[in-house]
Design a protein around this nucleic acid. Sequence first.
DNA 1: CATTCCTCCGAATCTTTTTCGTGGAATGAT
DNA 2: ATCATTCCACGAAAAAGATTCGGAGGAATG
Lengths: 154, 154
Amino acid sequence: MELDRIDCDILNLLQKDGRLSNKELASAVGLAPSSCLARVQRLRSGGVLRGAHAEVDPAAMGVGLQALIAVQLRQHSRAQVKAFWKHALGLPEVLAVFHVAGTHDFQVHVAVRDAHHLRDLAMDAFTTRSEVAHIQTSLIFEWAKSALMPNYRA
Amino acid sequence: MELDRIDCDILNLLQKDGRLSNKELASAVGLAPSSCLARVQRLRSGGVLRGAHAEVDPAAMGVGLQALIAVQLRQHSRAQVKAFWKHALGLPEVLAVFHVAGTHDFQVHVAVRDAHHLRDLAMDAFTTRSEVAHIQTSLIFEWAKSALMPNYRA
DNA sequence: CATTCCTCCGAATCTTTTTCGTGGAATGAT
DNA sequence: ATCATTCCACGAAAAAGATTCGGAGGAATG
């Protein structure tokens, strides 16, 4: 799909604030609301704009600790990879799963109550899995997300 | 801040779809729109609900490759950590930065055009930095985010 | 030039958001 | 037990916003 300057502006603004009203968005990109809406609808139906997700305060949810767990599997068969993938995504503590190439096979971002909870999670949900050979846990001191996906087209 | 069952429902629904209209949200949680709005405003002003971010298709932005770059610093002084942190967050390719405890000091999630771009990024923006001792790059085959932050309060 | 194709705009309509006053249930003191 | 007090939730009304639609302007094409 073809994206012009205004489409990119729209995408950037909505990445920063997904709840911008169409009217605000329109005036920010210099279009009439009706024209802006047409573009947003086009971006949505074209699969470029995929939806929005609210961000909540982890502390308010009782999350006191986050970690990255690097996981090595015993074998790299498709079945094992898929099994672990599904398992990890099913855990409530898991925020994100990365299947990677390198010394480890997965990096799993988890959010837990405290150190005790993390230990239990590591042992019960990772170490004991048959397809898991080895894990290495790194506590997260601080983390930040960039609001914007880079755009290499324009 | 005190969160009851309905607040949690609201937070979960907005995490899954941050653009739910207040009316839809209200009917989903079994409240009148006016009551639902009051709760959402309370969650917002209380800092529990922090905003929403649209999700865009990386491929549509010309992102063909993502990677996790594990970074080790030479020293662990506060100044070096802060300097690297700021630097990394300023790069357009960087989607997220994790300051971690463990064998590495940072994990940086980057989105690039292709392998060539990744090599340039690694060399120009990481390896050549004076505070960086060593990096290790892992290509991301696939990744997934869970929509929900776990809630350990309710 | 005439035609076609795009994209935008503004007005009208329809929906949603937001405000505000009322009433019921729970809490606590007398 | 009774009376305040507080906390929510509700519904109606007013305000704001979303969406539709017909048509104008402008660039490319033949």
